[in-house]
């Protein structure tokens, strides 16, 4: 299927906020409540059959022109289907004070580490994740460094064995 057909297939069967195909990347934006249903649909519908969660990441739109007031975070799923050789990008938006997204670990185990990394870097939580620990940084790290309000030169408190 080409990108437009994938978008049509998802649009027919689920509530979507918006879709676009900028530079040929089929993209669907869904609400957080609809997300688990849409992801399950993408994996299980034979016409879609997205069997791989290629990538999962987030973007902090705090300083993006025109998006300063909107929901702060966007969690981005890149799916790929080995069966049909097509891709889709699913996005959902969450606010800073309620930055929780349902976990996709039940659908694709690859979500496990990807979600840990998003929690580590952005402070977005994933409800239902079996072990939501920081992935790349250490537990004592203060803050979430890929947030736009985290300055690149901030120092972290030194850690070491307890005195």
């Amino acid at each position: 299927m080409d990108g437009a057909a994938v978008l049509d297939a998802i649009r027919q069967r689920a509530d979507v906020v918006e879709t676009h195909a900028h530079r040929g990347d089929a993209t669907v934006v869904v609400t957080r409540d609809a997300l688990p249903r849409v992801l399950a649909l993408c994996r299980d519908a034979p016409a879609l059959a997205f069997d791989m969660l290629m990538d999962l990441t987030a973007v902090d739109y705090l300083k993006y022109p025109g998006r300063e007031d909107g929901p702060r975070f966007e969690v981005v799923y890149h799916l790929y289907s080995l069966v049909h050789n097509h891709r889709v990008r699913i996005k959902t938006r969450v606010d800073e004070d309620d930055a929780v997204v349902p976990s996709a670990v039940g659908l694709w185990p690859s979500a496990n580490w990807f979600e840990r990394e998003v929690w580590d870097m952005f402070g977005v939580r994933f409800s239902g994740h079996p072990n939501l620990m920081r992935l790349l940084l250490y537990e004592e790290f203060v803050g979430h460094p890929l947030r736009k309000d985290y300055p690149i030169d901030r120092r972290q408190p030194l850690i070491g064995p307890a005195q």
């Binding site: 900028h22 990347d25 990538d55 981005v76």
Partner: peptide, 16 residues
Amino acid sequence: EAYAAVEGANGELGFY
């Protein structure tokens, strides 16, 4: 936004 993938030595190397 754009996602582009190439075949790295270890598999799909993607940049978003």
